[in-house]
């Protein structure tokens, strides 16, 4: 994250640390409500902020239900459809999912849901590990502008934006508090 940009006049704060905490706690309750068999649920975060968010939701579920829900990492870099067209090659990281997936519900967790292309890549990545019973989607922020028929099952905040804006999320930084900002570029 670029230092200090969220403090410039163009950055509008949307969520502070407390708002993020409440949103993730609510998502945890919704996941519990929607999945009677919690032991079959895997929270698969998309690096790097999705992984942090997945772990926080898992911690809330543990606090509420006293169940250690499984978490995983689903890296989408090698499943993207735009390699060779972007100036910067995405850094690939190892994915990690509990196996087999066949009986499980995999919940993809990301910070910002935008075009849906990242989620499409994540679903492809998950399918290369096996065939889960269900795939669901949780996002801290849904900013709209979908380019694919994809919708989230769990949303922290619906945030209408214009395509010219940028949504910045900071979560899990050792030095600075969590937050969500919108920047006009």
């Amino acid at each position: 994250m670029k230092q200090g940009r969220e403090n410039s006049s163009a950055a509008v704060p949307i969520m502070d640390a407390e708002a993020i905490r409440r949103a993730l706690q609510r998502i945890a309750h919704e996941i519990i409500e929607g999945n009677p068999q919690l032991s079959k649920v895997v929270l698969a975060g998309i690096p790097s902020r999705g992984v942090e968010i997945a772990q926080r939701i898992a911690a809330f579920i543990h606090r509420i239900e006293n169940i250690d829900i499984e978490t995983g990492v689903i890296d989408v870099a090698m499943h993207r459809d735009d390699v060779g067209t972007r100036p910067e090659l995405p850094v690939v990281r190892a994915s990690k999912l509990p196996l087999p997936l066949e009986e499980r519900t995999v919940i993809i967790v990301d910070d910002v849901l935008y075009t849906g292309r990242t989620v499409r890549a994540a679903m492809d990545a998950i399918n290369s590990f096996g065939r889960p019973a269900r795939i669901q989607l949780a996002a801290l922020v849904d900013r709209g502008h979908r380019e694919l028929p994809i919708r989230p099952d769990y949303v922290g905040k619906n945030l209408p934006t214009s395509a010219a804006e940028k949504v910045r999320v900071r979560i899990g930084s050792a030095k600075e508090p969590d937050g969500v900002w919108v920047e006009r570029t």
Binding site: M78, A94, K96, D124, A125, N127, S128, F129
Partner: peptide, 17 residues
């Protein structure tokens, strides 16, 4: 490291190239 993990998947193929 990231690509080694692909070899352990059921479908050992990714669309990167």
């Amino acid at each position: 490291d990231a690509f080694k993990e692909v070899g352990a998947r059921e479908i050992k193929k990714v669309p990167a190239l």
